[in-house]
């Protein structure tokens, strides 16, 4: 059961990395990052559970990590709004102006 759960989070992380690397829309990339964050939080909680007893440390880590993930996502979305204002779309293809 334990190893199945760890495998499950690993699959989720692979999924999110696939999402981050292949999607063209920046918003979809941010969604991928969010999946990544949540699966790591899940991983922490799973690792903290030893049968009957639960390590409270792992849970507090997960809670702090959720807060950090939320602030990063908020910042990313705020930047995406600015990208939209400058470029008119939210695509990675648009962000190729910086050269040399």
């Amino acid at each position: 059961m334990y190893s199945m759960l760890v495998l499950f989070t690993f699959l989720l992380i692979s999924l999110s990395i696939y999402c981050i690397t292949t999607k063209k829309s920046i918003i979809k990339t941010v969604i991928g990052i969010e999946i990544f964050t949540s699966s790591i939080n899940l991983n922490f909680v799973i690792m903290g559970a030893h049968g009957e007893s639960v390590d409270a440390l792992a849970q507090s880590f997960a809670i702090i990590s959720i807060a950090i993930g939320a602030s990063v996502a908020a910042l990313a979305l705020a930047l995406i709004i600015n990208v939209y204002r400058h470029y008119g779309k939210v695509d990675w293809d648009a962000l190729r102006r910086l050269k040399w």
Partner: peptide
Amino acid sequence: WQAVEGGIKYLLMSTV
């Protein structure tokens, strides 16, 4: 626009 483009690239790579 340079700041926004540089910032979002930095944010996404460094966050990952």
